[in-house]
């Protein structure tokens, strides 16, 4: 068979570090000092989330053709200038979907009933965990590359890359079978704490495995660190 092969990579909780500072950031408290009660709650929620989480990534490496108005991945076509810019000069790209698992999702639902305060924190922990999972996955992929660098991950919905692309992207990864990641009719992912993205494999380029707030112009961002 020719064409890209979908692989599944799993991580244990001990391999994914959820940083309290990131949790605070997603709570809209980035860079500020939480009180003792909140700090303890964050620690507790990280512990509980890690117990329920099942970190899985399904991914493929595609040969791509960057065209004027979009990028041809063979298995799908991604239209728009944003993706063209993101993948400029690349001939290959990694397409991936990462999830923290259905049990973690259920735990959050349960927490909503028991304590909304804790649920809000758990939700932020989930976001931080999904990002940490992507960071870990990307750095592992980067480590496999000898001379090339990975571009920052780019998701459907960013810039002018349509959210509609989620359908084809997750479909070609067979994400519901491979890692239990589903798409709703409204194009949202379940489990919610999941990420789908594309990363160019470029010659040179920015080494931005993690987003750095200091490089960003939007100074009134709620999530600025």
């Amino acid at each position: 068979m020719s064409g890209p092969v979908v692989l599944v990579t799993q991580y244990g909780a001990e391999e994914i570090a959820i940083e309290p500072a990131q949790v605070l950031r997603y709570l809209g408290m980035g860079g500020r000092q939480p009180d003792q009660q909140t700090s303890r709650m964050i620690e507790d929620c990280i512990g509980e989330f890690q117990k329920a989480a099942a970190y899985k990534v399904c991914w493929l490496t595609a040969e791509i053709t960057v065209q004027q108005d979009g990028v041809d991945f063979g298995v799908f076509y991604a239209p728009g200038q944003s993706i063209v810019r993101s993948l400029k000069d690349c001939r290959r790209a990694i397409v991936f979907a990462a999830t923290t698992g259905l049990q973690a999702e259920q735990q959050m639902k349960r927490q909503w009933v028991v304590s909304k305060a804790k649920a809000v924190v758990l939700d932020a922990v989930g976001t931080a965990a999904a990002e940490a999972l992507c960071d870990r996955f990307c750095s592992d992929r980067q480590a496999e590359l000898v001379e090339q660098r990975l571009r920052p991950r780019f998701s459907p919905g960013y810039g002018d890359l349509p959210l509609q692309l989620q359908k084809e992207l997750l479909n070609c990864l067979d994400s519901h079978r491979k890692i239990g990641l589903f798409l709703s009719e409204g194009l949202l992912m379940t489990p919610q704490k999941s990420v789908s993205a594309i990363m160019g494999i470029g010659g040179q380029g920015c080494d931005a495995l993690r987003h750095d707030c200091q490089n960003c112009e939007k100074r009134d961002c709620l999530f600025r660190l």
Binding site: M29, Q37, T38, A117, K118
Partner: peptide, 11 residues
């Protein structure tokens, strides 16, 4: 006061 604290008081 931050969101988790606000909600704890609400509870």
């Amino acid at each position: 006061v931050f969101l988790p604290q606000l909600l704890m008081s609400a509870e």
